[in-house]
Amino acid sequence: MRACAEGTRPEGIPRPAAAIITRHAPLAAVMTDFIGRLRQETRQSPYPAEELLRLGSSWRT
């Protein structure tokens, strides 16, 4: 997932599945990092709303 978020296309799976993974990987990476911080560091970790909005608007266009 992290590699897909950084631009690597998944291989060995059907194109439609690869497209879905590629499209959603950046959002998934941000949320994975956020949840990791909540669990490992502090429950006071700020929600990454701005980054999610930025990423969300970029894949809709």
Rank of each mutant, 00 (worst) to 15 (best):
P48R: 07
I20L: 12
R43V: 04
G36I: 05
A5Y: 03
T42N: 04
L27W: 00
Q40C: 07
G36T: 13
G36R: 13
Q40G: 01
D33N: 14
C4F: 10
R54T: 10
T22W: 00
E41F: 01
R15F: 03
G12R: 08
F34I: 09
P46T: 11
A25R: 09
E6V: 03
P46S: 08
L53S: 08
G56T: 10
E6Y: 13
P26R: 08
A49N: 02
G12K: 12
L52G: 07
M1K: 09
L27K: 02
H24D: 08
A19T: 11
A25G: 09
R2I: 10
R39I: 14
Y47P: 02
H24A: 09
R60T: 15
Q40N: 12
E50T: 13
E50D: 14
R23S: 05
P48M: 06
W59T: 12
A5N: 06
S45V: 08
C4E: 14
R54C: 04
A28C: 03
R54D: 11
R15Y: 02
S58G: 03
F34S: 06
L38K: 15
G56C: 14
P10C: 01
L27Y: 02
V30P: 02
Q44W: 04
A29V: 04
R9L: 03
P10I: 00
F34A: 04
I35W: 14
S45G: 01
S57M: 12
A25Y: 03
E51W: 00
P46M: 05
R23C: 00
T61K: 05
R9G: 00
R9F: 04
Q44G: 07
G7M: 03
E6H: 14
R60S: 15
R37N: 06
G56E: 07
I20C: 03
S58E: 13
R60H: 13
A3E: 08
R23V: 01
H24T: 11
T8S: 09
P16E: 10
A18T: 04
P48L: 04
T61W: 00
E11G: 05
R54N: 07
E6N: 07
L52I: 14
A28M: 08
M1V: 14
F34G: 04
R39Q: 06
T8K: 15
A25T: 10
S45F: 00
P14D: 15
D33G: 14
G12F: 01
E51H: 02
M1I: 11
R37T: 14
C4H: 11
P14L: 07
R43F: 00
R37K: 15
A5W: 03
E6Q: 14
P48N: 05
P48G: 08
